[in-house]
Simulated assay, not measured.
Amino acid sequence: MTLPKFLLADNSNFPDDIFVLHTEFPRFLINLKDDEIEWFEDLTGESEEDISTELADLMDKAGEFYDSEMKQFED
């Protein structure tokens, strides 16, 4: 099965939160409400500079994905 790179996630226990799941390495769940991230990978041994650069890029892409999905609902 081929998975999309990003998925929207919802949970009725957190009605004000907006979650985006990143399915490729490094896999994580980001709450766009407060940018809190839950990592599903052990990033021990990775370059801290590389991780922070990649994280910033992936956070931007997660936000762009969400905006794109919401625009499709509006149309």
Rank of each mutant, 00 (worst) to 15 (best):
D16T: 08
D42T: 12
M70F: 14
D57H: 15
F28Q: 09
F6L: 01
F25W: 07
K5E: 15
F40P: 01
D42M: 09
E54V: 07
N11H: 12
D42P: 07
T2R: 11
F6A: 04
I18Y: 06
W39C: 00
T44F: 07
H22P: 01
D17Q: 08
L32A: 02
L21M: 14
T23W: 06
E24H: 07
I30W: 00
A9N: 06
D35P: 04
A9Y: 10
F40R: 12
L55S: 05
D34T: 02
K5L: 15
L55C: 07
W39R: 04
D16Q: 06
N11P: 00
M1N: 08
S68Q: 10
V20K: 01
E41L: 03
K71L: 13
T53F: 08
L3P: 05
D42Q: 13
A9E: 09
L21N: 06
K71G: 07
M70A: 13
E69Q: 13
D75T: 15
T23G: 02
T2Y: 06
L55G: 02
K33G: 06
L7M: 13
G63I: 05
D75H: 08
F28D: 08
E54F: 09
D34L: 05
T23E: 10
N13T: 10
T53L: 10
N31Q: 12
D35Y: 15
D10Q: 13
N31C: 14
I37D: 05
E41S: 02
P15A: 09
L58Y: 04
H22M: 06
D16P: 02
A62M: 05
Q72Y: 13
I37K: 02
F14A: 09
D57R: 15
P26Q: 02
P15H: 10
N13P: 07
D10E: 14
I37L: 01
I30V: 13
F6H: 01
D35T: 11
D35W: 11
F28K: 02
E54Q: 11
K61I: 00
D10T: 12
S47M: 06
I37C: 03
S68Y: 09
D10C: 05
Q72F: 08
E48A: 14
K5A: 15
L58V: 10
E48G: 07
A56M: 08
N11G: 08
E48D: 09
T2C: 05
N11T: 06
I51M: 07
V20R: 00
D17R: 00
E41G: 07
T2F: 12
H22D: 01
D42S: 11
